[in-house]
Amino acid sequence: MTSLKKQHDTGRRIFSAMLVAAGMFAALPAFAQEKLTLRFDFLPYGAHGPFYLAKEKGWFAENGVDVTMDDGSGGAITAQLVDAGKYDLGYLSFASAMIARDKGMRIKGIAGVIRKGDLGVVVSDNSPIAKPKDLEGKTILYSPTSVETLYIDLWFKLNGVTKSNVNLTSMDIGTKVSSYLSGTADGMFVPAPIYTIRKGIPRLSKAILFADFGLPLPGFGIIASESVIKAKPKALAGFVAALQKSWAGIKDKTLMDEAVAALLKNRPNAKLDPVYVREQLEALASYMDTPATVGKPVLWQSPEDWAAGIKVSEDAGTIQKGSKPEDYFTNEFLPK
């Protein structure tokens, strides 16, 4: 009897110790995730889906980062906020980022998402306009504050277009888009992909790109300030590794629907059309490579492409002469 009691007491002590140990482990903090903040370029659209997909899939968490993402109100403002330390990261046009850095903002591209330049003119799908010279005699809308406007004169010059023969009409971006879509002009200067989709656009359009006619500029990607690059290298590497998985699934079209669903789930108030969003993503997927990036990892940036962008920006007068590709980008955060 005494022996049984001893065994019972011993068992109780072991069980109590196990409960205490379990409580201690439960009290331990979860695996620490470094917080990052990201500012987008504009209100939600297809390009934002892969970012929310990385969140929904747990890829950010697996790579040690907790990312807060906010809508934007233009690439120039996003660059300013990242430079000022209000955000760790920004998603915007690299053409805008180049100009911002030339003005003294200490920002760099850390991941190239849309690597082919997307700026140009959109015209009706059935229009005979097929090259820059065809714009002569036509009414083309532009917005004075948009980045593509800074390159119009050089593009015309390179392609033998007499500017005075083109009826260039200045409008703010909202009025420009609605006027073009209603058919009141022959074309408009814009980032092309989202206006060449087949769903939700009342005027089917095609693109005449700067990049296809002598004016290669970098597309869209992620920037960080030099101070964040120095202070949070591990977190940035984790962010890029997670995002690479998402965009790889867009490029090979295996994660299109999941990216759309992730965007709609995280931005319900935007009331986005899933078919429209998917078409935006499909259009963007065709801009994910240049000849210099074919066969390279998703998000890798080409020094050759950046050098070309620097050259045309110098010629256009949007940046000063004398900079080099490594001033504007780094591939150090891509998975090795």
Rank of each mutant, 00 (worst) to 15 (best):
residue 3 S to P: 14
residue 8 H to Q: 15
residue 187 G to Y: 10
residue 141 L to W: 11
residue 333 F to M: 02
residue 188 M to S: 10
residue 262 A to Q: 05
residue 253 K to H: 12
residue 173 I to L: 06
residue 135 L to E: 07
residue 199 K to C: 10
residue 28 L to C: 09
residue 328 Y to H: 04
residue 79 A to L: 11
residue 87 Y to F: 10
residue 108 K to R: 11
residue 287 Y to W: 14
residue 82 V to H: 03
residue 152 I to R: 00
residue 268 P to Y: 01
residue 70 D to P: 13
residue 310 I to G: 04
residue 68 T to S: 11
residue 195 Y to K: 03
residue 283 A to N: 06
residue 151 Y to K: 00
residue 317 G to Q: 02
residue 80 Q to Y: 03
residue 230 K to N: 14
residue 180 Y to C: 02
residue 153 D to N: 06
residue 259 A to H: 08
residue 192 A to V: 14
residue 79 A to M: 12
residue 237 A to S: 15
residue 34 E to K: 04
residue 317 G to V: 01
residue 227 S to L: 11
residue 238 G to E: 09
residue 25 F to M: 15
residue 49 G to W: 06
residue 27 A to C: 10
residue 269 N to C: 08
residue 2 T to C: 13
residue 140 I to L: 05
residue 49 G to D: 02
residue 257 D to E: 14
residue 205 S to T: 11
residue 32 A to S: 12
residue 111 A to N: 03
residue 292 A to I: 14
residue 314 E to D: 11
residue 259 A to G: 02
residue 196 T to R: 05
residue 277 V to M: 08
residue 286 S to A: 13
residue 300 W to R: 03
residue 87 Y to V: 07
residue 330 T to R: 06
residue 241 A to I: 07
residue 95 A to K: 05
residue 130 A to W: 13
residue 10 T to L: 15
residue 189 F to S: 06
residue 287 Y to D: 12
residue 88 D to M: 10
residue 64 G to Y: 10
residue 332 E to Y: 12
residue 180 Y to D: 07
residue 73 S to D: 13
residue 250 I to M: 07
residue 326 E to D: 07
residue 213 F to A: 03
residue 200 G to Q: 06
residue 159 N to K: 03
residue 171 M to P: 06
residue 23 G to P: 00
residue 32 A to V: 06
residue 97 A to K: 04
residue 106 R to N: 12
residue 132 P to V: 04
residue 259 A to T: 07
residue 135 L to D: 05
residue 312 V to A: 09
residue 23 G to R: 02
residue 92 L to C: 01
residue 144 P to K: 13
residue 79 A to F: 11
residue 176 K to N: 02
residue 255 L to S: 01
residue 152 I to L: 04
residue 23 G to H: 00
residue 89 L to N: 03
residue 51 F to C: 14
residue 34 E to F: 04
residue 186 D to H: 13
residue 60 F to C: 09
residue 63 N to W: 03
residue 216 P to C: 08
residue 296 K to C: 11
residue 144 P to M: 08
residue 116 K to F: 00
residue 6 K to E: 15
residue 231 A to S: 14
residue 218 P to R: 07
residue 316 A to Y: 05
residue 60 F to P: 07
residue 181 L to H: 10
residue 322 G to P: 04
residue 74 G to R: 09
residue 270 A to V: 01
residue 320 Q to R: 15
residue 59 W to S: 02
residue 103 K to T: 09
residue 274 P to R: 12
residue 150 L to V: 08
residue 97 A to C: 05
residue 145 T to M: 00
residue 200 G to W: 05
residue 56 E to V: 13
residue 233 P to D: 00
residue 24 M to H: 14
